[in-house]
Write a protein that binds this DNA or RNA. Structure first.
Lengths: 334, 334
DNA sequence: ATGAAAGCGCTAACAC
DNA sequence: GTGTTAGCGCTTTCAT
């Protein structure tokens, strides 16, 4: 594995100083045209490209923005797609980072300390678990932690979305509707639960605590919780899950227990990740525009970076949600 | 925006030298237990985390592997999911990088020069356009460029997959089957075309050049090419697209022109990206295990990094493909 | 056991 | 116009 070619190699080869090479590369003036051409040639010939890292260390500007995620899963990769689209033409690169071994709590703090200032000019945090980021670089949160909201934020209208989902079930005639909650530390999860409760209340139904379980936005936890729900003396005829991944867990449980969806059990998810269309049966779900979430976050961040550094209050953008009816919901059998 | 806390801040606060702090952080010995504890405390209190970049510059080891992609789209984000899963428990972080403004040709070379050696210990290249990477860090290619194959590579059995897809159409009774090619610089594209030709030949049909168009794996190009195909005096009754994104372009064109799929036109894609289940109608496609592709590439790379540095010849892993029948294919109307 | 100093690859002042 | 020097945040000899 031959060594990477550095600016020193170029300088030596061209017979000039590294400073001169640097100036040529960065288009600084005060360089003879002939020298510039000559150096350019050597750069080309050696295939030299300056190290993002070394440059970043000196200038504290890398023109890269970080998208920091706990894990690459359907939600975060949709954010990535949106973020990537939003930087096109801005001169910024997108750097997505995840460290599987970082632990579930406070990863964003660690990531930010490790990358901020030297590697990325700013960051988009996907579903952060904290709400007081270290003040290293400008940050925008997507689908944030519950809390006072000190970070610029973009999220979806989770409350209305949840109401929509549950209302759909009510309209079909369901009365015993279960709920599988998400990560309690995320505002989205709290609001989706609130929407569930509100929709029931509006329909004159008192929420039954026995029908409300936590599943932490996780598929396996959702499967277990569903099994418990279905083992109840008077089981629900429908379940609203706080996200699509949990809804898939419900489908897993139903399949395992021989409960037919939607005939015996209706299921509504939340998110509309691409995967939700290929479940068996395809999932009825509340769609949020995840790519838009990512793109909006990037635009906010770019504003923070280039424009006025947070002129006034911390911005908050909220995107609409809507119901997508597929095949996992039907009127109750009984 | 308060400055990031550096090792110097910790040292000053703790009343020791930066060297001592560094040793404590890295668990080097030759440090008094009391000092270590004290410094640890300060580190914690200040929320210090060493800069990946500065450390990488000194040690030339970052324990991060790069996944370098031209763009975040369905295929590359599936690779990311697989790569993320494969690093769990290995102590490596995944760093996905894309620079929208880098241009379509030779981006991997530039990325590698910019990131290699100082930021990432090795890289997975998704659909690289080149095949002679600079010898900076170990590299594994996924779905590579056509060429002599000097890089360790993982790909799918594209030839068999394409035969499967076209055979399905033949089995349904189609005889005039169009083909929308991919990026001619990628081996996958060449092999899928070869499979298309071979399947036709095996069925005693001579491939008609008029029915074969290029679409570069791009949705808009596919739509345009499809419009041209359908305007033919004797248009095809089915089209095999070299990837799902192109197949979606076919669907776009059909919808715009009022051609019903699958009644008047059958469509088969390639990839089985998550999105392909939610098209209208859901896409029949040849599935490749994209996440597995990413995971396998990471395993290969990790082997190169930790184990014997390429013990012998350059490895090549090939994963199977299979047909997924959904609703975009049916017997021809005429 | 601890610290001073060099150096990773680069850029920005400042000399020449 | 071009080179010398310092320093970004860190780790690692090498002194002390």
């Amino acid at each position: 594995m031959n060594r990477r070619v550095t600016i020193a190699d170029v300088a030596a080869e061209a017979g000039v100083s590294v400073a001169t090479v640097s100036k040529v590369i960065n288009g600084r003036d005060g360089i003879a045209a002939t020298t510039a051409t000559h150096v350019q040639g050597v750069v080309e010939r050696l295939g030299y490209e300056s190290s993002l890292v070394a440059r970043g260390m000196r200038t504290h500007r890398t023109h890269a923005i970080g998208v920091l995620v706990a894990e690459f899963e359907p939600f975060s990769t949709e954010i990535l797609k949106g973020a990537g689209a939003a930087v096109a033409g801005t001169g910024y690169a997108v750097l997505a980072y995840t460290d599987a071994d970082a632990g579930p709590q406070g990863w964003e703090r660690r990531y930010l300390s490790r990358l901020g200032g030297t590697l990325i000019d700013g960051a988009v945090l996907a579903t952060p678990t904290l709400d007081n980021p270290p003040g290293t670089v400008p940050v925008v949160a997507v689908d944030p932690h519950t809390g006072p909201g000190v970070m610029p934020t973009v999220d979806s209208d989770n409350l209305t979305g949840a109401v929509l989902g549950v209302q759909h079930l009510l309209d079909l005639g369901h009365r015993r509707i279960g709920f599988l909650g998400g990560r309690r530390d995320l505002e989205s999860s709290v609001l989706r639960e609130a929407g569930y409760v509100q929709a029931l209340l509006d329909a004159g139904i008192t929420p039954d605590p026995a029908l409300m379980r936590g599943a932490g936005y996780r598929r396996d936890a959702a499967e277990a919780a569903t099994a418990a729900l279905l083992a109840l003396p008077d089981p629900p005829t429908a379940v609203f899950a706080a996200n699509d991944v949990s809804a898939m867990g419900i489908l897993d449980a139903a399949a395992r227990l021989g409960v037919r969806v939607p005939d015996e059990l209706s299921v509504v998810g939340f998110d509309d990740i691409p995967e939700s269309a290929s479940t068996t049966p395809p999932l009825t779900t509340v769609r949020q525009e995840i790519q838009q979430l990512g793109a909006t976050a990037v635009r906010l961040l770019l504003g923070l970076l280039d424009g006025a550094p947070d002129a006034g209050r911390t911005p908050h953008e909220r995107l609409p949600t809507r119901l997508v009816v597929r095949a996992s919901t039907a009127p109750p059998a009984r």
